[in-house]
Design a binder for these strands. Structure first.
Lengths: 160, 160
DNA sequence: GTTGAAACACCCTCAAT
DNA sequence: ATTGAGGGTGTTTCAAC
């Protein structure tokens, strides 16, 4: 998993790009999509797994249809900047099931949390839990009106 | 895809939660994980696909190992609020390959864009493209110092 | 890198309960 | 809902090029 960066050529990048878009591709379709024989493609795939370049695969669930219809980006500014406080806060946030993303960021704010809840009441539930026992300087929620792009696959051959 | 909400029981939620974490589970392992026979589990899975509850599956690629090592959350405040301008801006942003997420948000800002680039120079390339031909009131980047949680699977039985 | 073949595992269906 | 069994498909390995 943590070995050095290995040599990745453009065939590998094509494989990775394809699987990012659709991890359910069969070996046959994947090989055809990248322009390799099934055998060669399979060997590359094993290697990409073994060096940790492919970490796993996740189904994309329609959370909206389950009533999880509100996405909020929560910016947090803390009052404390000790290692201990930061560790405690991190554990606290990790325990909240509404949390999808959790980044420590630079600039004006300290943390960015993406949460998905059942409407505004679900968000308030989250908010109350978030501020319980933690002295936060500022908490601001930016409510998603519309997800235009969500978790788009990176075209690795283009961004390189 | 757009049909009415269907009845989803706790077995379905378990299936969805499992596949969110790991879409590569075999039918056998999935059935065992949710506590159903392979047959029953398979039929539910077909149904969940057919009603659009499962939209697809995506491999999780180690972008960092490919040199895509900088994540930035870009907040944008626009100067124009016409439908035409918004449509143009949307098309513009969708064409930028660095964009992973793109939300229209409420509150102080208009848009939140998550971008992944090769270091700061890659971000500057993105920034220059973003502001070309578009008159934006404010653009602020919040740079990720650390991704603590990234695209975590929702425990659907808990959040319900 | 390629093709082709064989062994195996898995998926899907069906029948019976 | 369950088990069990069969046929077909896909994956994985191997040999030869």
């Amino acid at each position: 998993m943590n070995e050095r960066a290995e040599k990745i050529d453009s065939f590998d990048l094509k494989i990775l790009t394809c699987l990012q878009k659709n991890s359910n591709l069969s070996q046959r379709d994947l090989a055809e999509a990248v322009g390799l024989s099934q055998n060669a493609c399979w060997r590359r795939l094993q290697r990409l797994h073994s060096i940790g370049m492919i970490r796993g695969a996740h189904s994309d669930i329609n959370l909206n249809a389950l009533g999880l219809d509100l996405t909020v980006f929560v910016m947090v500014r803390t009052r404390h900047h000790s290692k201990e406080w930061a560790d405690d806060f991190r554990k606290h946030v990790e325990r909240l099931p509404e949390v999808i993303d959790f980044y420590r960021i630079g600039g004006d704010w300290d943390y960015l949390i993406k949460v998905v809840t059942r409407g505004m009441s679900g968000y308030d539930t989250f908010y109350q839990k978030l501020i319980t026992n933690f002295d936060l300087a500022t908490v601001t929620g930016f409510f998603s009106m519309e997800a235009i792009i969500n978790n788009r696959a990176v075209d690795l051959n283009r961004v390189r």
